[in-house]
Computed example of a mutant assay.
Amino acid sequence: MDDYPVHQIAEVIRHVGTSDRNFYDRYYFNAHPGAEATADSPFLIVGLGQYPNLGVVDGFAVLRRGEDHIVFRASKALGDDRMDVSAGPLRIEVLEGLHRLRVVLEPNPEQPGLSFDLTFTADVPASLEARHFHRQLERVTFDTQRFVQTGHWRGELVVDDEAIAVTPGVWHGNRDRSWGVRPVGEAEPPGRRADAAVTAQQNFFWIYSIMQFGGFSVIVIVQEDAHGRRIVEDATRVWADRNREPEWLGRPEHELTFRPGTREVTAARLTFHRPGREALTVECEPVVPHYLGVGTGYGLEQDWRHGMWQGELIVQGLRHKVPEIEDWMKLMCPVDNLSRFTLTEEGQKYSGTGLFEVAVIGPCESYGFTGYGDTAG
């Protein structure tokens, strides 16, 4: 890339514009059988990230099928070639920028229960989301940019020696690219952040929903602090017709229903308030909850975090039974729900499927949670 006129700062391409250790550059994909999905359907999530100031690249693939939670993960030293988008047997190929990508996990002895060769083709243009910026005690903890798009999949998924044909008329999903600053790597000394007055207000309330409705997709982001104040929000409709501009849907509000004794969402209603127009609503029905953080590096396991140095090349496989995942992990874990959606707009109803990612971690006045251990009554 250094032979192209694309430099943004007075450095070579592989050197980013900040020395912040937490700079990252990541891919995320999910794949599922769309409207045909049941509680036992396979739901695949794949991620791969580079961490230039930590010298690390890592990736994962995690499949939920029935009660099985199957994890592949790999980490290696980041070399000079930033176009090498691989971690062990996991690799990503950009076949056509912003439109078509290939995601491959070669058969491997570390995780014999999972492999795939899948190609994603977008059905809407890539949509640039609202920038995510947050400070804590004067330090920038989040400064990220992301684009997202929905599409369909083609290829083959192999689970426990069973080959599953992935066909574009059935298999759907979304993918995103994000980069910037967010907490990664080995945990830093907390300093003042460990003070009880500070930790009492720390939380993570997050809704990230990507919905597919045939001729359009809907993108929703809501992050709030413990008091319900918005940190970031987005509500955008992206049309499959590339001649139509993306449409702002208004301020999104949420009503979550939790399973008693947990913070797991069993139903949700999103309402979008547009000035001078009737409110638009979306009913969400979770079908397959996927515990994204278990085994994949999102901070639950202190020995495997995104960007953590593991060695020149480490490849591992894990397997859990979902009912045996510890309650505290589920409580502290973002859940990627494969969901059905019903959108109502001016008397018209539209049915769709997609992602409803939600985390309600720590204090949350909106739902009556005062600490990390509270659950729904």
Rank of each mutant, 00 (worst) to 15 (best):
C284M: 14
V16E: 02
A279W: 00
L256T: 04
I221K: 05
F116E: 13
W239E: 13
G307C: 06
S115V: 08
I221Y: 02
F133M: 08
G180S: 07
V265Q: 02
P5G: 13
R21H: 10
G307T: 12
P5L: 04
Y298M: 15
S75Y: 00
F133T: 11
G261V: 10
D176V: 12
L90Y: 06
V104P: 03
P246I: 08
W153F: 02
G261I: 04
W179V: 15
R274P: 01
V16A: 06
Y24F: 15
Q8C: 10
D176M: 09
M1H: 11
I45F: 01
E326C: 05
A165Y: 03
A31Q: 04
D58S: 08
D336W: 00
T262Y: 04
Q145C: 09
F29A: 08
R251G: 05
R192V: 14
D195H: 12
G88L: 05
W309V: 12
G368L: 09
A240G: 15
L355F: 04
P168W: 00
G352F: 01
L318G: 07
A130Q: 13
P189D: 07
F356G: 09
M329N: 03
G354C: 09
G17S: 11
V358H: 03
G368T: 12
T281D: 00
E110S: 12
D143C: 15
L343F: 03
H32Y: 08
T199Y: 02
G307E: 03
C284S: 08
